[in-house]
Design a protein around this nucleic acid. Structure first.
Lengths: 236, 236
DNA sequence: ATTGAAGGATTGTTCAACGATCCTTAGGGT
DNA sequence: ACCCTAAGGATCGTTGAACAATCCTTCAAT
């Protein structure tokens, strides 16, 4: 028979409800394309033909267009009326704008450190450790993803799902730009130490210093990317 | 013949290029529905039948579904698999999350006052004046929209298109909640003076005080909304 | 009151079609 | 050689229809 302890079973089931939600065909197609784009398999500027992709993936044009909408909204694709969709080509202006937004959000997020939950602060620490371990093992691609997770965790300090989603979008978009950097090591290595420096300042209660460090951190990264863009193609 | 003064005509034309871009049928349908939702003509929770709406608007189901997708991404509609789309019903948690995000962005944006362009700071002042004039004329709905523009202009200080877009989304979503407030005057009136107070502090160079004022401003508004929600329906 | 099954209504997905738009190419004029 | 124009092909935008899958309602049975 029912007892007070039994009350919890429902919550336990509901906790994983996210997995239950059916994913539509369009959603799966979008997931596939997103992965391809983010790992650079689809070169920026490439036009994605509806008919070609539709028949290649075995989905109808309508469904494919639905997947396109998802990715256009994530800014990974751009849609030009009557011309089709293209893999996004980031310009220098985009990089500047993205870092402007990142500085705003991430620097402000640091000020939430003290009021953040233990889970949120732990996530920051874990991502940092992960990056350090990957660096020690020369796995520089993993360093890059751990770095992403670090910054995502910083945003998580705020405790707002919408802020999390916005930052996830910014970081995803930036991955389009990371492809122009040749060696992942030279790009990611300098920031592993920065991650720890910021975290140390935070735990020491020197929040404003951490903010300053984060700002310089992001300014450096921006400059590095802008320089790479200028070297690659001065026109854009 | 051409003179130096004529050089500007091209820029003037290009400035309005936004209007030139053809809009798809789905885009126009989405614009129409968005306006209806934001002004409260479509009540939250209402289900939008594909067939009924499609024939009413004279567009096919496929096109209508594309319009739905746009609005789902803007969080004005929610989509439930095999059940259809519904006008978003905000919960108290949504309101809390939205204000958490607003505090992060808008408070941080104030610190960009000194480095902002003249156009950006002017926009803030103009929106404030507009709200004051509307209040003086007892046009409280206009006060509300001017208030929106004020906060949008605050975000504009950052000078990032992505930040602008994010804040526009937050404010649009919030308008879903504003409808639960009965009298627009009691909700908007207190903030007209707050707008000026913040601007005065900014122009006086007392940035951190302005940030504190903005934070209290937003906390007050959140509390007011949360109270209204609790009064309306304690369950959500 | 809860469960189960039948039926109708709505959505999910695909397909085919046609007009509209874009890009390319060829041709004519200067 | 260069520019403008026109024709053609390719692709997109939108529609309508069709069928399967899913949901909601109703009603009977336990």
């Amino acid at each position: 028979m029912a007892t007070a302890r039994d009350q919890g079973w429902l919550d336990a089931v509901v906790a994983d409800r996210g997995r239950l939600e059916r994913s539509s065909t369009a959603q799966r197609v979008a997931d596939l394309l997103r992965a391809q784009i983010l790992e650079g398999a689809l070169a920026p500027g490439l036009r994605l033909s509806e008919e070609a992709l539709g028949s290649a993936l075995g989905v109808s044009r309508n469904t494919l267009r639905e997947a396109f909408r998802l990715l256009v909204h994530e800014r990974l694709l751009v849609h030009e009326y009557s011309r089709g969709v293209f893999v996004r080509v980031l310009t220098v202006d985009d990089v500047v704008d993205l870092y402007q937004a990142r500085r705003l959000v991430e620097c402000a997020a640091l000020r939430y450190w003290r009021s953040a939950s233990a889970a949120a602060t732990d996530a920051v620490r874990r991502a940092m450790v992960e990056a350090e371990e990957a660096a020690a093992a020369d796995r520089w691609v993993d360093v890059g993803t751990a770095n992403m997770r670090y910054h995502q965790a910083i945003a998580g300090l705020v405790g707002s799902a919408r802020v999390d989603a916005a930052v996830a979008g910014l970081l995803a978009e930036l991955r389009l730009a990371f492809h122009v950097m040749g060696d992942p090591r030279t790009f990611h290595e300098p920031y592993v130490a920065g991650n720890r420096a910021i975290l140390d300042l935070l735990t020491a209660g020197r929040t404003e210093e951490a903010v300053g460090r984060m700002e310089r951190y992001l300014l450096d990264a921006e400059e590095q990317l802008v320089a790479a863009f200028a070297r690659l193609d001065p026109s854009r």
